[in-house]
Simulated scan of single mutants.
Amino acid sequence: MQNVLASIWRPKDGMEIHDLGGQRYSFVFFHVLDLQKVVEGGSWTFEQNLLLHHKLEANEDAHLVRLNRMDIWVQIYDLPTGMLSERILKSIGDYIGVFIKADSQNVKGGWKLFVRIRVTMDVDKPLKRKMKIKREGVLGHG
C-alpha cells in the first residue's frame, strides 16, 4: 500500500503508513505541504476501496474516530447560462452535502461542459443526482 500510494502522491519529504488493524491506517507525512496536497487533491481509493481520512487532534483515539465523511469534487452539468454564481454553486453544494469551495478554474460566462465544486459528503447517506434550479435562483429538489 505504501509504495503504491507514494508513487501516486509523490510526497517530497516522504511518508509512512502504519496498519492500526480493523481496516484503519495511520498516514504520516513529513511535510505539511505533502499532507495538504493529498487532503485537498481529491478523494482517493486503494484497490477499489474508498480512503476516508481524518486529521487526528491531540489525545484523539484513531480507533474511535467515526469515518463517514469525505471531501469530493463534484461536476455540475447543464447549469443554465447566467446561473454560474458563487451563491448558486454554494446552494448546490449545500444540497449535495456541505459546500467547501468552487474550483478556481471555473470560468464565469462562456460555454463550459461542467463546473466543479468541492463538498463534504456523508458516505452513509444516498447520493443526490438531480436538482431543479428555477430562473429566479430559487432552488428546488428534483
Rank of each mutant, 00 (worst) to 15 (best):
N68D: 15
M121H: 11
G140A: 14
K101D: 12
H141W: 09
R135H: 01
V138G: 07
E60Y: 01
V32M: 07
L56G: 09
L56W: 05
L79E: 07
V74Y: 15
G137R: 10
L56M: 10
K12A: 13
H31L: 06
F99S: 03
W9S: 03
G41A: 00
L79F: 03
R118E: 12
A6T: 08
M15L: 13
D34I: 02
I8H: 10
L50F: 03
T81A: 04
I8E: 10
G109N: 07
Q105M: 12
V98L: 04
Q2L: 08
L5D: 00
V98E: 14
K12L: 10
Q2G: 01
D94K: 09
P126T: 13
Q105K: 15
N59T: 02
R87D: 15
H54A: 04
M1Y: 06
G22Q: 14
I76S: 02
Q48E: 13
L113D: 15
D34L: 01
K108G: 05
V39T: 11
K134V: 02
A58E: 14
E47L: 11
L79D: 12
F114M: 09
Y25W: 14
Y25C: 03
M70E: 14
L113S: 15
T120L: 10
L35G: 01
W9V: 03
K55Q: 14
